Amino acid sequence: MTLKPVPYTPTPARVSRKKLWMAAIKPPMYSVAVMPIALGTAVAYAETGRIDWGIFTTFVMAAILILAWENLSNDVFDSETGIDRNKPHSLVNLTGNKSLIFWIGNSCLVTGIAGILAIAWWQQDVTILAIILLCCGLGYAYQGPPFRLGYQGLGEILCFFSFGPLAVFAAYYSQTQTGSIASFMASIILGITTSLILFCSHFHQVEDDLAAGKRSPIVRLGTRRGAQLLPWLCGSVFALTGAFVALGLFPVWTLLIFGSLPPAIKLCRHVRANHNQPARVSNCKFIAVSFHFWSGVLLCLGFVL
């Protein structure tokens, strides 16, 4: 690939380097990698009564490394389009070394795939490897050239499948070497909450997205309509869980997910009040991460119980 430099326009805000590095690394975001593995394993435990902790631990570490690759490579690809020129916490902007970030990301990918290869070797089954490679392909197509499907507003759809049905099925399969309806239904719920994080990340960067030609859902809908859609997206998580319990697909303990209502309500109220104020709404993706984390933990707990 050709790495063409795009000038970085510094922001006037005085932010400490430590805070910029923490924002660039995004530690809370790595729950996105862990949760599909935890949920698929929790459903497997509910149905089989056992967990292979070696496979679980290896899978979690591999998932974290693969997500690190995606985050690093996205910074590289975004730096080529100029969409991150006003983003001081971009790793490319912080280091000034695009090639370094690119190759660190690739190293994370290779190491992560090595973990998945180990699981496939232990089980003498390449199914998980094929699924994770497909997830990686979708992750690349999100921002990588020549696809850049995220710029067409398809990022949330790719995110839904990668971190929902595909990843949860892979985690469930790694424990059981089969599939289940319950794991598929659970993956839909997790896919929604994961996609919400990406959806919310667009509210504060409409101008930058437009300047770079990125047609994100918020660019297409507008911030007001996006804010009006948010309660329906959050509400679908609870409605689906209730429906699956009523149909006997989920154990009644999964209704614990209603304990994640506070961050969901906080998210919807915050975005509704500040949807057109970039400085104030920029933190909404972290509220979405909180909703994703607590709804996922409580759903996992429901299956384990």
Rank of each mutant, 00 (worst) to 15 (best):
S180V: 07
A182S: 15
Q177N: 08
S174D: 10
Y173L: 02
L133Y: 02
A141L: 11
Y172M: 09
S174L: 11
F160H: 09
L134R: 02
Y142D: 14
F163W: 13
C159N: 15
G179V: 11
T176H: 08
F163H: 00
I188C: 04
S180I: 06
C159M: 07
Q152V: 10
L149E: 11
L158Y: 14
G139A: 05
Q177C: 00
T178S: 14
A182W: 06
L166H: 09
V168D: 00
S174F: 12
A186G: 07
A182V: 05
C136Y: 03
Y140Q: 04
A167W: 08
G139Q: 04
P146G: 03
G155Y: 10
Q143F: 07
F161E: 05
F163D: 02
I181M: 12
G139F: 05
F169Y: 15
L134E: 05
F160Q: 09
I157G: 14
S183Y: 03
E156W: 02
P145Y: 14
F147N: 06
Y151S: 08
G150E: 15
Q175A: 11
G150Y: 15
L149W: 14
C135F: 07
A170G: 00
A170V: 03
L134T: 13
F160P: 10
P165C: 07
E156T: 00
C159E: 08
Q143K: 05
M185W: 14
Q177L: 10
C135N: 12
P146L: 06
C136R: 00
S180Y: 10
C159P: 04
F163P: 08
G164A: 03
Y173P: 02
S174E: 14
G150P: 14
R148T: 03
A186H: 13
G155V: 08
T178E: 12
S183P: 07
C135P: 12
L138D: 07
F184D: 04
Y172L: 13
I157H: 14
Y151G: 06
A171V: 15
C136N: 03
S187P: 08
Y142W: 12
F163K: 01
Y172R: 13
Y142A: 03
S187G: 05
A186C: 06
A182T: 12
V168R: 04
Q177F: 04
C135D: 10
A186N: 02
G139K: 06
A167G: 12
A170S: 05
R148N: 03
G144N: 11
G144S: 08
Y173R: 02
L138F: 14
S180N: 15
S187T: 07
C136D: 04
G164K: 00
Q177G: 09
P165R: 01
V168W: 02
Q143L: 08
L158F: 13
R148W: 13
M185D: 09
A182Y: 08
F160A: 03
Q175G: 05
L154P: 06
G164I: 00
G164E: 01
Y173A: 00
G150S: 15
S174G: 15
V168K: 02
F160L: 04
M185R: 11
Q177V: 10
A171T: 13
A170F: 00
R148Q: 11
L133D: 02
C135R: 12
